[in-house]
Every structure is written in C-alpha cells, then in structure tokens.
Design a protein around this nucleic acid. Structure first.
Lengths: 153, 153
DNA sequence: TATTGTTATACTCTATAACTATA
DNA sequence: TATAGTTATAGAGTATAACAATA
C-alpha cells in the first residue's frame, strides 16, 4: 500500500485529471453502497429505480430510463426483476396502450423505507469527515458538470 | 428531455444522494472521455495505465494495479493489449524474476503526449463553466472521500 | 412515420478462485 | 509459506440494431 501511494502522489499528469479522481471516489462510494444494499437484495440500479418509482408513481419506462440515464433496453431487465419480486407493478395506460405506468406495491414501499434509511446512514458516514462547505460545493459541481454536458448531446 | 428533468428535479429522495450524483456526473465525463480517446484507440483504463507507466518507468504490475485500484487479473489484459501494440514493454527484473518492470516505448511516449494533450483540452472544456473555487473544492472532496474509505478497507 | 417496450447481442469493467514460477 | 503474474470464468453495466404493437 505505501508503494502505490508514492506512485500515486508523485504522478503529476493524473493528479488533477478529473475523470480519474471521479472514478476512484465513485468506486469507493459504490463499493460501500453495494454492501449497504446487499441485505435488501438491491443493487445501485435497482435501488435507484425503486426510489424513483415510489416517488413518482405512474411514470413510464422511457421516462425512468431518461431519469436514470440508461438505455431503455437495459431498464427492461431491471423492471422485470422488481416486478418478479412484486415490489412494483406494470399498469397499462388507458390513453396510450403502448406504455406502462409503473407503481410500487406495498412491499415495494416498505422495502423503500428501510433501504432509504440505510443508504442515508451510509452516506452520512462517508461524508462525516467532509466539512459542510466542501460537501455542498462538490454536489453543486457534480450537478453542473452533468447539466453542462446534458445540454450538448 | 423536459419530462425527465421534471421527474428528477421533483425527486427529494435522490437529489442529494451522493452516489447518484457522482454516478451521473461520472457517466457524462466518462462518455466524453471515451470519445476523446477513441482516435488514439485508447479507453479510460488503457489511457490511465499508459500515463502511469510513462510517468513511473519501471513500476511493477502489482504496483500499477494498486495505483489504478483494479484487480491484478484485470490488469494483465490491459498490459497485454498495450504490449501487443508496442506501446510498452515488460522487462524482467533481475533481482526478482517473478516481476516485470513496465516501461513505455518511444511510440508509447509519443501516443502519451498526444493523448494527454487531447484529454487536457477535453477536461478544460468540461470544467469551463465551473468557477475555480468549485472545481478546487470538488477535487478536494473527491480525494478525501477516496482517502477516508481507503483507510477502512 | 414515430414511439413504447422488447429481444438479442456484444463489449467493457469488475471480482474471485486456482494455477506457475519464483522468493 | 508467501508473492508476482497468469488463466479461466462469471457477474454486472453499457450500447446498438431490429422487431411488434400502437400512436
């Protein structure tokens, strides 16, 4: 471990390479998040989908894919999994029979409550050492990066 | 697009969920980075490996895997690829015949120069709209998150 | 014609166990 | 015994093309 720290600290080219820094930080956050969600049999993607469905009852799969920033085909298997576990249902939309309105079941909402509580605890633990101003600045910066590039494509 | 923005903006649960924010921002950065590196026939991982080898000549695969935060088996195929393209070489280490000292070839260093220049441009474009203080704060926050968790595992 | 959801598919990244050759 | 690199493999995430049903 000390060796890799030396390599890393001495590397001028990568030090402020944003993609590299984001990847490393995201890796640790996601690894920890995966562990946090394991007891609920959820992964980051299934968790995010469940949260968005509970908070936005009736939304369509295409809207959810958009909100999650994933391709529609990749969402299908996530929804399949949540439906198979009876955490959500696909309701037909009377006004547009191509689409499905996604809604959480009671079991889905109950799992949501427990998982959100666990994730909140986990995030607070991760950010415990971060001064509030750094935390706020980071969130703001991440939002702006996302927005700026969303505008281009 | 406006629909997903509404959903997203109205979602209280995920708004400040750090893992979610990081993932979305990282997604756009990585997608853009992938495009930037395509003309050089590099991906984020091969680019990072090449940069670290050029900047730290003679380092071992295990050190590189550590620095890149990936598992040794996954590094092997990356090194195979860079070696096959004659961008780097695996030199035997006389004092430890199990290990390899990784070094860039002239072609590797030339590709490095061009790719680093392109990535630097790309990053500056991404961060152009970010005030310097936000940019600095974000990098600092990302480093701290990474360090804090590296200490635990 | 365009859109919603779907199937199939392929590529990349990640993670683990087990092997070899050296130490 | 432990370590460096390797092989094999499996799981997860991502991306694209093409299709059926519906608008």
């Amino acid at each position: 471990m000390p060796q890799s720290d030396v390599i890393h600290a001495g590397d001028a080219t990568l030090r402020n390479f944003v993609g590299y820094r984001m990847k490393r930080a995201f890796n640790v956050v996601q690894a920890d998040l995966t562990k946090t969600l394991k007891p609920f049999d959820l992964r980051m993607l299934t968790y995010t989908a469940l949260v968005l469905i509970v908070d936005n009852p009736g939304l369509r799969q295409s809207q959810l894919a958009d909100a999650m920033d994933i391709e529609r085909p990749n969402l299908v298997v996530l929804i399949d999994e949540l439906e198979r576990r009876e955490l959500i249902v696909r309701d037909r939309v009377p006004t547009d029979r191509r689409a499905y309105a996604l809604r959480a079941t009671l079991a889905g909402r109950q799992l949501y409550e427990k998982a959100v509580a666990a994730v909140t605890l986990h995030e607070n633990a991760i950010l415990a050492d971060l001064p509030q101003d750094l935390r706020t600045a980071m969130i703001e910066a991440l939002k702006r990066i996302e927005k700026a590039h969303r505008g281009r494509s």
